[in-house]
Design a protein around this nucleic acid. Structure first.
Length: 273
DNA sequence: CGCCAGGACGCCC
DNA sequence: GGGCGTCATGGC
């Protein structure tokens, strides 16, 4: 990854990044496609910092109105620019299906998101579809002036006061996650450092957090790349292409492999969405 | 009307 | 331990 400063912007050269594939692939739900002079532009926030980022025709990226300091302190990590995805994909290409998946959507990167936001987001994601997950999270953040609420803020709410979310049966799960995180029963920064099986069971103390949600929090919110969320789509991949099990050579980064496979299988029959 | 969506829970055996 | 109905909501 190379970058340089150009007036108020940071210009990035990075071939292993595609904004649509990375920001709109079901790992993060708060990025919004914006109209602009560039082929692809997204706007969003990480914690309290706003970003407008564009992908240009020649494959460069513009981080608009971004200081070098913010780029290095925030966005470099968020976009996981410290990881060599070319090398990763090279490893994955040992496997035929994975190789095709990487070729299909080679611009996916694993974002380093906030664990609390991921926890709530993937609680909301259960038995739900991506457009409606985004709509519920939109209503939630809108309620707090455009920022994702803290555990302390959300722990003041109850299922009735959350009815504006129209999140259905998930509201009671959001409350439990908020209460346990706010009062320290669940400590996300400690969980992030635990051995993975301990981390799994710690997360699953929360009502509404089962195998799939805990795996997503570990992968997307704690960058535990060995976490491997299995949803209906990945279940299909495993049944169709890996009847004898997922290749162990990719174990350390199984979660990243999963991202390529998820995007691949969802778009195989027809480019939906 | 039905089925499905980045599932988990409660209850049953 | 595995199997199954249920849980809100909305799009198709």
């Amino acid at each position: 990854m190379d970058y340089h400063v150009k007036s108020n912007d940071i210009i990035i050269s990075e071939k292993d990044l595609d904004l649509d594939e990375t920001l709109d692939c079901g790992q993060a739900f708060r990025w919004k496609k914006a109209v602009s002079e560039y082929p692809c532009t997204y706007e969003g926030k990480f914690l309290n910092t706003f970003l407008k980022v564009s992908q240009t025709k020649n494959g460069e990226f513009i981080f608009h109105d971004t200081t070098e300091k913010d780029f290095l302190n925030i966005w470099y990590d968020y976009f996981d620019f410290g990881t060599d995805y070319t090398e990763l994909k090279k490893q994955f290409s040992e496997d035929e299906t994975l190789s095709k998946a990487c070729e299909f959507a080679g611009g996916i990167r694993l974002l380093r998101q906030n664990s609390w936001e991921c926890l709530v987001s993937f609680i909301i994601s259960q038995n739900n579809n991506i457009p409606r997950i985004k709509a519920i999270i939109d209503r939630l953040c809108e309620h707090y002036g455009g920022l994702f609420p803290s555990p302390e803020q959300l722990s003041q709410e109850n299922t009735d006061s959350l009815s504006y979310l129209r999140s259905g049966f998930r509201a009671k799960y959001i409350c439990d996650a908020s209460n346990k995180t706010a009062d320290g029963t669940v400590n996300l920064s400690e969980i992030a450092e635990m051995p993975i099986d301990d981390a799994r069971s710690a997360l699953r103390q929360i009502s509404g957090v089962g195998p799939k949600v805990s795996e997503c929090v570990l992968l997307f919110g704690m960058h535990r790349t060995e976490a491997f969320p299995i949803d209906v789509w990945i279940k299909r991949v495993l049944e169709e292409y890996y009847p004898n099990g997922f290749p162990t050579f990719a174990k350390e980064n199984a979660g990243i492999a999963q991202q390529y496979l998820f995007h691949y299988i969802r778009n195989l029959p027809a480019k939906s969405e």
